[in-house]
Amino acid sequence: MKPVIELEDVRRYYTMGEIIVKALDGVTLTISRGDFVSITGPSGSGKSTLMNLIGCLDTPTDGYIHIDGEMTLGMDEKDLAYVRNQKVGFVFQQFNLLAKMSALDNVATPLLYTGVPYRERREIAMSALKKVGLADRMKHRPNELSGGQKQRVAIARSLVNNPSILLADEPTGALDTHTGAQILELFEELHSEGRTVVLVTHDTDIARHAKRQIHVRDGRIGEAG
């Protein structure tokens, strides 16, 4: 089976004045469909850069990236937006819900960009919210939800377009241990249903939940576990 994520000698350099910062310096990595992978590393290791590249928020300076068959090298912002919408489900540490909208509208937003009609959007969003156990919180706004509930809404939102990868950036970072554990359980459940989960964290305890652990240091990767 073709891997869902493929990186081939990927480099990402930034120029800061006269200095070239090599955030990623030759990363080759494949993640197969249905895998549960963690990416760890200290701050400044290139972990975030790797995540942004996998999430198609950024393109590499050199090297090839394939996300579920789409090669992102040389893509413009419009094509990248399409890949993000179709192939990637983002879950953030700070939830990043849109404050003025209900849980249901938040979850339905990616479908809006896909061009799904209103009724269908609502139905899909409703079933996604049911799946994360928030069927009774659909009309609530983010400020009326607890941290754990917000993260569940965010996970529901990441699922609506049935993406190839779930990309979670420190998803438990803003939650207490107990709630964090529940969220991790939810990810494990999603993984067991066959979804590809990429968990980015600095916490090795959390990383241990993953089946495969990738460690980033100084712009290069190594494997552990």
Binding site: G55, K78, A81, R84, N85, Q86, N96, P110
Partner: peptide, 16 residues
Amino acid sequence: TKEIGVRKALGASPRV
């Protein structure tokens, strides 16, 4: 700005 970033991450193209 943050909202725009979130919308872009969710797949909003520049045109949208």
